[in-house]
Design a protein around this nucleic acid. Structure first.
Length: 720
RNA sequence: GGCGGCGUAGCUCAGGUGGUAGAGCAAACGGCUCAUAUCCGUUCGGUCGGGGGUUCAAGUCCCUCCGCCGCUACCA
């Protein structure tokens, strides 16, 4: 009796539109689920959007709609994309449901009864105006580290320091601008260390029987080694699941606690019999498909939550974690809009099966992989069309042309050929069993290639009249091989498999048909399965979705960007001290002409002595967000040129330039009066270089009082 | 600087527990014509990032250096 298989793919966060890199997990689980169904396992594939949490609450607030409305909007986008890719979910649900509330609360209460939940009292900011505790990111104020006035309570966007909202100087509510007060609040923590012995006992066995990947195990172990502590599971938010304790009314669970439980609750929205899946470890195997960044949640946090209930749950059996898919020369990036997104794929006019083909042919199974348009074209034309599609086409065309579409009747099948096929099919099945999808897929193409060789070696176009009996037998073998290939690719290319089945007059493909030679009586004239990807088409797509094109455009106007975002001024160094707690840093007092005191920190120890700097006039980035370097405030940054190996660092000194003078780009002589505050990354995104001893941005030299700024020792190098 | 990952043929990638380097594509040549100028065969091609070590034997283990990516820092 085969076990039932419960399959999940990581729940995508609702307000992210998935790109090809994200789609891999959902597609992988789909292939596995389709395989399991064909192979006769009772299968359930569950996924859905993860909806609770501050991110959606904030975004909904900004747009003036309810979080639920926002989620519904995005849920539809997700669903459309997955539908287009033919993902065969048994249920694609969402986490904002009554079932989720009920199950999360009951799991929590079990943990609570079993003593794995602790509470701690902390002080948090509270808005009396809005009558609510403020989530970390709803508090704004002045960063205690760098002085940035718009710092958020969770993290200062300026200096990047992780903050506690209570650290903020002069805090205010981002909702109503009122001044929040400190108020005591209590939060609940799950005691993961207390559950650890159970977790380890379970993991020791599960990781072996489920054949967890080496890297997943290693990641889990290191996570346990240096990170396992009590984790807070509640928040003072509205958009979430209420904590079912009177003393905690008004609080909700933190998303990471409830999200994995979404797998269970979504099942519950699909069938009232959900416990037969999730509370049935003896008969159900759980396969989870995730990205490599998600491993600890599925190996530690979620299992711990379940183990802590002291009840029976269906726990993770096999985990398939994919690596990253990169795009052309870089990474897929949601924030920067780089790459191909789910909705883009639809608009290319390229069928879903072709996308699916390439995603699996090049699935990032054991290491990161790269999506390139050239490779996409090459693999599609060469393998999908030249190899597999061609075998189908040449075989079926031959039969329908020379045998009027009826199944050739010959001297019986070739046992040597079928022995080889059977061996390969067994291997492919084994790959499928452990979700080694890419290996399985490639092996199918190798099998197809074998078919092409068999066809070629048999030369039926020659023997058709000289030895009709043998020729008919050969063709019959090939037709059944085509049928087998249709079965084997169904999980990957469902639409294509269905079309081949139609040519062969087969209603339903199943794994048990593999290797058999019966059931087909007639062959229809096949239509071409795929159109080749043309050079011009690929070129257009590459340009349309090219990040580098945007980069080129940006580079072309880099000087403009610089002129409108970076303000450089001359400043005189009045004092230099060694930083007491740092080996490489000087702390300089400077006069920037404004009369105000100003301090900057520079990593010049070893390159300059203090007396070489005092009294000199240097160039300072004026509108850089202040930062604290090893405890000392740095309000700006001085410019220095360095050669390639950083063996020479040359501070850019100015002669006869008054402090406060703005440094300009030649040809763009406009001063910047009210510059935006920029962070270091923004600053460094615009390269300043020394070329032939002239300091430039793009090709424009920097000038002070109309004179070009030059270097003495570093003729060519970068400036920062 | 620290932690993690990676570096295998022109390209995209395979290579549990160490035992004479693999696939596909690209390139060159030849063959075939049933098939979407497709298919089949042959050849070419790598001191497995550099160096050192352990071993009878290392792409595979250890050390070190270099380069790239991610996170991070007294980067700037």
């Amino acid at each position: 009796m085969k076990k039932r298989r419960l399959i999940t793919s990581a729940l995508p966060y609702v307000n992210n539109i998935p790109h090809l890199g994200n789609l891999i997990q959902v597609l992988s689980a789909d292939v596995f689920a389709r395989y399991c169904r064909l192979a006769g396992y009772e299968t359930l594939y569950i996924c859905g959007t993860d909806e609770y949490g501050t991110a959606t609450e904030t975004k909904a607030r900004e747009e003036g709609i309810t979080p639920k409305e926002l989620c519904t909007r995005y849920y539809t986008i997700h669903k459309d994309i997955y539908d287009w890719f033919n993902i065969s979910f048994d249920k694609f649900g969402r986490t904002s449901t009554d079932e989720q509330t009920e199950i999360v609360q009951s799991i929590f209460l079990k943990l609570y009864e079993n003593g794995y939940i602790n509470e701690q009292e902390i002080e948090q900011l509270y808005s009396e105006e809005s009558d609510m505790f403020l989530a970390d990111r709803y508090v704004r104020g002045t960063c205690p580290h760098c002085g940035y006035t718009e710092a958020r309570g969770d993290q200062c966007e300026n200096c990047g320091k992780v903050l506690d909202p209570s650290d903020l100087v002069d805090p205010r509510s981002a909702l109503d601008n009122s001044r929040p007060v400190m108020r005591k609040t209590r939060h609940l923590y799950i005691n993961l260390p207390a559950i650890l012995p159970k977790l380890e006992a379970w993991m020791k066995e599960a990781s072996v029987s489920g054949r967890w990947a080496h890297n997943a195990l290693q990641m889990t172990h290191s996570w346990i080694r240096d990170g396992l502590k009590e984790r807070s599971i509640t928040r003072d938010l509205k958009w979430g699941i209420p904590v079912p304790l009177e003393a905690f009314a008004g609080k909700v669970f933190y998303v990471w606690f409830d999200a994995p439980i979404g797998y269970i609750s979504i099942t519950a929205t699909h069938t009232s019999d959900w416990e037969s899946w999730w509370r049935n470890p003896d008969n159900v195997e759980l396969f989870q498909f995730i990205g490599k960044d998600n491993i600890p949640f599925h190996t530690v946090i979620f299992p711990s939550s379940l183990l802590g209930t002291h009840e029976q749950w269906t726990m993770l059996h096999h985990m398939s974690s994919t690596e990253y898919l990169n795009y052309e020369s870089g990474k897929f990036s949601k924030s920067m809009g780089i790459g191909v997104f789910g909705n883009d794929a639809q608009e290319t006019g390229i069928p879903a099966d072709v996308w699916r083909f390439y995603m699996f042919y090049n699935r990032p199974e054991t290491s990161d992989a790269v999506f390139t348009w050239d490779d996409f074209q090459e693999k599609t034309n060469g393998e999908l069309i030249g190899n597999l599609s061609n075998l189908v086409n040449r075989t079926l065309t031959f039969v329908s042309r020379y045998y009027e579409g009826s199944m050739p009747q010959g001297a019986g099948s070739n046992p040597t050929f079928w022995a080889e096929v059977a061996e390969r099919e067994a291997k492919i099945t084994e790959f499928f069993e452990w979700a080694q999808l890419r290996s399985a897929f490639r092996a199918v193409f190798a099998l197809s290639s074998l078919g092409n060789r068999h066809f070629q070696a048999g030369e039926p176009w020659k023997t058709r009249e000289t030895d009709p009996d043998a020729t008919a037998a050969l063709l019959a073998d090939l037709v059944y091989l085509v049928r087998d290939i249709a079965i084997l690719i169904e999980p990957f290319l469902p639409e294509t498999a269905r079309r081949i089945a139609v040519f062969l007059g087969i209603e339903e493909l199943t794994w048990s048909m593999l290797g058999t030679s019966e059931g087909i009586t007639a062959v229809g004239r096949p239509e071409v399965l795929f159109r080749k990807l043309e050079d011009g088409q690929i070129k257009d797509l590459r340009e349309r979705f090219s990040g580098s094109q945007a980069d080129r455009a940006a580079a072309a106007k880099m000087d403009e960007t610089f002129a409108s975002s970076v303000r450089l001024v001359a400043a005189r160094i009045t004092d230099v001290k060694r930083h007491e707690k740092a080996d490489k840093l000087f702390v300089e007092q400077i006069d920037d002409g404004s009369g105000a005191e100003r301090q900057i920190v520079s990593g010049l120890v070893g390159f300059y002595e203090p007396e070489e700097l005092v009294g000199k006039t240097v160039i300072v980035v004026d509108n850089l967000k202040p930062a604290k370097l090893r405890g000392e405030l740095s309000q700006g940054m001085l410019l220095a040129a360095e050669n390639e190996d950083r063996s020479i660092v040359e501070v850019l000194f100015l002669n006869d330039v008054e402090p406060g003078t703005q440094i300009l780009l030649e040809g763009i002589d406009r001063t910047l009066e009210d510059p935006p505050v920029i962070d270091v990354d923004t600053f460094f995104s615009i390269p300043i270089e020394a070329r032939q001893s002239v300091v430039r941005v793009a090709d424009r030299p920097l000038t002070a009082n109309g004179r070009q700024i030059t270097t003495e020792r570093v003729a060519d190098g970068s400036v920062g």
